[in-house]
Amino acid sequence: MSVKLLYFAWVREKTGIGQEQIDLPADVTTVAELIGWLKERGPEYESAFEKAHVIRAAVDQTHVAHDAPIASAREIAFFPPVTGG
């Protein structure tokens, strides 16, 4: 299944890209599993997701926890805790 991944702030700087389209492996079913899978893709991903516990995620533009399912997601975003306002 094809899904769009987006990265923001220092997660974007570390991965080196703002967004990409990937084919999600069938055995990757949660946000946490996706983070684990991404970390295997290269040193830039390993570095971006090193402190996985501080990284926030959104599935289809809604905040979710790391145990959230991603089966029907079209868009998944990863970013640091927000600092607007």
């Binding site: 923001f8 702030a9 220092w10 959104a58 905040h63 975003a77 970013f79 640091p80 805790p81 927000v82 600092t83 607007g84 306002g85």
Partner: peptide
């Protein structure tokens, strides 16, 4: 609510600073 959930990120530029603001 805006400060803790709206997806904005601040980056400061300056002589001594220069980096993403921590939550």
């Amino acid at each position: 609510y805006l400060k803790t959930s709206a997806p904005f990120w601040k980056k400061e530029d300056g002589a001594e600073t220069g980096g993403w603001v921590d939550a």
